[in-house]
Computed example of a mutant assay.
Amino acid sequence: MTTAPDQPDLLEAATAIRQGTQRLARRVRTVRSAGALSTNKISVLSHLARLGPSTPGEVAALDRQQPQSLTRVFADLERDGLVVRSADAGDRRQSIIAITDTGLRELQRDVAERDAWLAGALVGLSETERQVLVLAAALMEQIADG
């Protein structure tokens, strides 16, 4: 973990960015329809869609959780046909979880719903303001990957 810089302007910028991203993330989560999958389930499906079949430990590590914390999530997703579980060919004690076509469609539906809300919220901004946000999003991805 990195330590916070001593420069007050960087700390102020970090605080403003954190507060803005957290408020927006909470708002986007609240616009999901009733009966939508939990954020844990969406996170698991997102990881599997992006990375392909993975072990429970690999998926849990991406969310900084223990695999045991997601046991019920994995079971629910499998029961609902959104993921399939198979034995690892290299280590039969280990399971591999993969997203199904149904799971991918459910993930895409959830993402589309949130993107539609956000697109509507962007209507009130100028083209320049929207481009600033697009640039900021790219920079936040860069920071998150770093």
Score class of each variant (00 low, 15 high):
Thr2Ser: 05
Ala4Gln: 07
Pro5Lys: 00
Pro5Trp: 03
Asp6Leu: 12
Gln7Lys: 07
Glu12His: 00
Ala14Ile: 00
Ala14Asn: 04
Thr15Val: 01
Arg18Asp: 06
Gln22Leu: 04
Ala25Met: 06
Arg27Cys: 00
Val28Ile: 08
Arg29Ala: 01
Thr30Ser: 01
Arg32Pro: 00
Gly35Lys: 05
Gly35Cys: 11
Leu37Ile: 01
Thr39His: 08
Lys41Val: 01
Ile42Met: 08
Leu45Lys: 03
Ser46Phe: 08
His47Lys: 15
His47Gly: 10
His47Ala: 09
Ala49Gly: 08
Arg50Asp: 12
Ser54Lys: 10
Gly57Leu: 10
Val59Arg: 05
Ala61Gln: 05
Leu62Tyr: 12
Leu62Trp: 06
Asp63Met: 12
Gln66Thr: 12
Pro67Glu: 14
Pro67Ile: 06
Val73Asp: 07
Phe74Thr: 09
Glu78Met: 10
Gly81Met: 05
Ser86Cys: 11
Ser86Leu: 07
Ala87Val: 13
Asp88Asn: 11
Gly90Gln: 12
Asp91Phe: 10
Asp91Gln: 13
Arg92Thr: 13
Arg93Asp: 13
Arg93Lys: 11
Ile97Thr: 12
Ala98Leu: 08
Ala98Cys: 07
Ile99Leu: 09
Thr100Gln: 00
Gly103Asp: 04
Gly103Met: 04
Leu104Ala: 13
Glu106Arg: 09
Leu107Asn: 11
Leu107His: 14
Gln108Val: 09
Arg114His: 10
Asp115Arg: 12
Asp115Ala: 11
Ala116Asn: 04
Trp117Lys: 07
Leu118Thr: 05
Leu118Glu: 02
Gly120Ile: 06
Ala121Arg: 12
Ala121Asn: 11
Val123Cys: 06
Val123Trp: 10
Gly124Asp: 12
Glu129Lys: 04
Glu129Phe: 03
Arg130Gln: 14
Val132Cys: 09
Leu133Tyr: 05
Leu135Gly: 14
Ala137Ser: 15
Met140Ala: 13
Met140Phe: 14
Glu141Arg: 14
Glu141Thr: 14
Gln142Cys: 15
Ile143Leu: 02
Ala144Ser: 15
Ala144Cys: 05
Gly146Met: 05
Gly146Asp: 10
